[in-house]
Structures are given as C-alpha cells and as structure tokens.
C-alpha cells in the first residue's frame, strides 16, 4: 500500500494540472476573500458594491479573526467544482491514457491501487486547504498591520474544525468526480456533468423547492451541495446575511458532517465495486 501511495503522490506532484487547479482555487479565494473587500473598504461607503455595509464591518471580515471564513467560504461552490475536476482528471486520466492496464498488471490488487489513489487525493486536498489557509492568513495579517486592526486569532480548535470541515467538503466533491470518472471511463463527461450539478442544478432545485414545492425540502436537504454549505456555515462565524453563495444553515452542522461522510463512503465504495468487477479492455 505504501509503495502504491508513493507512486500516486509522484503522479500528482508532477502533474501540472493539479497545481493549476490549486492555483485557481487560491487566486479566487484571495480575490473574493481579500482583494475585492479591501478595495471596497478603501474606496469607502460611496462605492455601491458595499451596499451600505459599514467599513468597520468590511475590515473585520478580513482580519485574522475571520481567516477561516475566508479560507473555506468558497469551498461549497467554486473550490468544490475545482476539487471535482481534480478527482475526474486523476481517475479518468487512467482510462483515457490507457494507463489503468499498466498499473493493474503490477503487483498490487485493484482495491489497493484505488485506495492509494484516494489516499493521495486526500493528501493533495489537505495541501490545497493548508496552502489556501496560509495565503489567507498572510493576507489577513498584512491587512491588520496596514489598517491597525486586531491581531486576534481563532482558537486552535476552531481553526482545526474549520480546516477539517473544509477538507471534508472538498474531498466529497473530489470523490464525486472520481466516481463519475470510473462510471464513464472518461474525463470530459464527468467534469461537464459534475460542474453543471454543483454550479447550477443544486441551486436551481433549492430555488424551485423553496418556492413551488416546500414539501420536498427534505430532499434538497440531503444533497451534497446543501450539506457542504451547511457544514461550512456551522464551522465559521458567518451570519446568514454575509455568507457567500452556497453557504447557508439549511441543516445542522452534525447532520451535515454525517451526510458528507456518507457521501464519501458511498462514492468510494461505488468506485471500488466497479473497478474490481469490470473488465479492463
């Protein structure tokens, strides 16, 4: 297992697409978490984009105290989509390049190889989360220093809870990409379907259900996007008014956590079952 894990890490480490996706997530987090709010803060209340939010409130949102909010606030939507793309390209690439037959004819069993792939993806996602956190922390420290803001940090427990929750959100979407790649033995189709689901379908469903079919709210509350948003909401200090798109308190934090774990388990089990049973042609 250790050898297979090292092999998977070598593949991920040397694949530029993995770092491009990480870079995109990092840049988007910094733009929406710090650059745009800081511009609106410096240009004052006259800027219509602040929408009447007091400047002190805008500044407080960028200080170290709120670093977790800015680190994982975008995970349920855009970073989730990037994680789904990561899962799809890593697992689907084995089919499109035909390398699956090459690695399956080495010594380890199919389950071991897939397990090592998921473990390596989990490691890479953890590095993404950590990388984005460090960048956000540096920005918040810089802004606090420049604007004489508070240097108070969240407790270690709060930080750990927030980063772990963020990792679980991204891992859920990454495994969703992986299971779609196994199902379609492809890269493009899983990315297309997955991204449309994350960015469009779930939001559309939630809107239709809340306005036309309130009796089906229980159904939308079981969807991965809803639970990802709810978990992020529960581990950050956001209020309903200042939460970014996709982050809301649809279900409680505990339930969201269990639901995301269940999705991860189901996606991994389905991938394993299919990979072990199917002919590699």
């Amino acid at each position: 297992m250790l050898g297979s894990y090292r092999a998977e890490m070598l593949k991920l480490r040397k694949r530029s697409a993995v770092w491009v996706l990480f870079g995109a997530g990092l840049v988007l987090s910094l733009i929406f978490g710090y650059l745009l709010p800081y511009l609106s803060y410096t240009t004052g209340d006259e800027n219509p984009s602040t929408g009447g939010v007091p400047r002190a409130e805008v500044l407080r949102g960028m200080l170290p105290e709120r670093v977790i909010d800015n680190t994982i606030g975008g995970y349920p939507i855009f970073a989730g989509a990037l994680a789904l793309v990561l899962g799809a390209i890593v697992i689907g690439g084995e089919y499109t390049w035909g390398t699956l037959k090459t690695i399956l004819t080495q010594r380890p069993r199919r389950g071991t190889i897939l397990g090592a792939q998921f473990l390596a993806l989990g490691t890479m996602i953890a590095l993404w989360v950590l990388g984005i956190f460090i960048a956000c922390a540096l920005c918040s420290v810089g802004i606090a220093a420049a604007e004489s803001g508070s240097m108070t940090w969240p407790s270690i427990g709060t930080l750990a809870q927030g980063l772990t929750g963020g990792w679980l959100v991204l891992m859920t979407w990454c495994l969703a990409g992986a299971v779609l790649a196994v199902a379609f033995r492809n890269v493009a189709l899983p990315i297309g379907l997955g991204v449309v689901w994350i960015l469009g379908i779930e939001t559309l469903l939630a809107g239709v259900v809340s306005s036309l079919l309130p009796g089906l709210k229980w159904l939308t509350n079981t969807l991965p996007g809803t639970n990802a948003g709810s978990l992020v909401f529960s581990v950050t200090g956001m209020g309903s008014s200042d939460a970014p798109p996709g982050v809301r308190d649809a279900v409680g934090g505990g339930r969201a956590l269990l639901t995301l774990f269940a999705y991860c388990a189901v996606f991994a089990a389905l991938s394993l079952w299919t990979t072990r049973r199917r002919d590699v042609t």
Binding site: G3, S4, R6, A7, L10, K11, K14, R15, S16, G93, W97, G98, T99, K101, T102, I103, Q106, R107, P108, I113
Partner: peptide, 22 residues
C-alpha cells in the same frame, strides 16, 4: 497492446512509479 504511460512524466519517472507499485 500499445505501451501506455503518463505523457507528462519522463520515461524514468514512469518506471519509478511502476517500481513503487511493484
């Protein structure tokens, strides 16, 4: 059939990762 390897890796790295598996 045709030899299938990771196109973004060198020949050496492709063999290194196969050596890790095996």
């Amino acid at each position: 059939e045709s030899p299938a390897f990771y196109p973004y890796l060198s020949g050496l790295d492709n063999l290194r990762l196969l050596a890790e598996y095996a």
